[in-house]
Design a protein around this nucleic acid. Sequence first.
DNA 1: GAGGCCGCATGACATCTGTCATGCGGGCCC
DNA 2: GGGCCCGCATGACAGATGTCATGCGGCCTC
Lengths: 201, 201
Amino acid sequence: MIRILLADDEHLIRGALAALLALEDDIAVVAEAGSGDEALAMARAHRPDVAVLDLRMPGPDGVAVAAELRETVPECTAMIVTSHAGAGALRQALAAGVRGFVPKTVSARQLAEIIRTVREGGRYVDSELAADAIAAGASPLNARETELLSLAADGAPVAEIATRAALSPGTVRNYLSAAATKLGAENRHVAARVARERGWL
Amino acid sequence: MIRILLADDEHLIRGALAALLALEDDIAVVAEAGSGDEALAMARAHRPDVAVLDLRMPGPDGVAVAAELRETVPECTAMIVTSHAGAGALRQALAAGVRGFVPKTVSARQLAEIIRTVREGGRYVDSELAADAIAAGASPLNARETELLSLAADGAPVAEIATRAALSPGTVRNYLSAAATKLGAENRHVAARVARERGWL
DNA sequence: GAGGCCGCATGACATCTGTCATGCGGGCCC
DNA sequence: GGGCCCGCATGACAGATGTCATGCGGCCTC
């Protein structure tokens, strides 16, 4: 019997998922949570085999919860179920040790099958998202460029970025210029947008 | 008997919703759709009483479908069910003639009740979202400022905005400057972000 | 130690952007 | 019509930004 923790802030969906998974003979939902913090508490209390986490939740998001779980409840395998995600989220999730990444377009039957796969040590990634991630490829940005571009992502002026990164404004401009060139963007704002879309931030 | 069209690209959720709503005696799901285009086709074919639309779908989104339905199937009342929406989406939805706007955090029982309310000519808006929308208040931006700010929203340089709006670059700068000042933003990029968050674009 | 590479910094310069003062024309009231 | 206000547009100017060439110092390899 696979013991499941279900975390999703949408009652409607969480309830439906619980009901549908309960139909499977070898799966038991032992805990439910409506936020990231609740999910962590539940996981510590019930120590489930698999945590099915929504990506977007109040408090820590699914990826953050997965990362935390790897530390505190290592025997629990994390997987993400999400509504509308891009290659970026997938990349971050895999880096956090998530073993499954599925959009909510799958059927309940498929989800159950994926839970079994993950429980047995396998991995599952939605093929469409995987294709996106592969198409986007590895980031052409180096560490500094990535750091500065993410600081620039909310539209802050260069002076503020320089202060926050403890660098000279000129240096910041250089790195941002290099990043924009690599991404084929005409300025740092579109560069930040592009990088975000591709999961490079 | 209230005849329902259910449109949501997430199989998992659409299936669950259909099952849960079928438990209600006075509600019948007569059609399902997985995209905006499909929703329109289904609505024309089945002419349901109420269309329950997901906000984010492939093709036309929920609001666009609602607007189109008002033209082509006027007897069909539209309502939006969404995962994570802000005041902006709510504002646009109401402008498109949507009669109900609910987050997916509601229970199935509540949803059924809201469908009945809407069917009888009432309206329903999630109170949390309504509070957000009221707190954001009316947009301080005039028509021109709004138009130019939305053109600026993707980080395009002023020259391109000017071309697309058929205005001189100087004029564009003035309007964007005015908009940024009104929003307390330090440049047009953060101004665009703020305006988007508040539903003013 | 010489040479070369790399990360960071600086300065010069062109261009872009934000701010301000001003100009033009239509609608409105008297 | 004359005077006025208001929305829209334009241009000038300063400061911010993007681009390029260059310099400095640490690190590696030979």
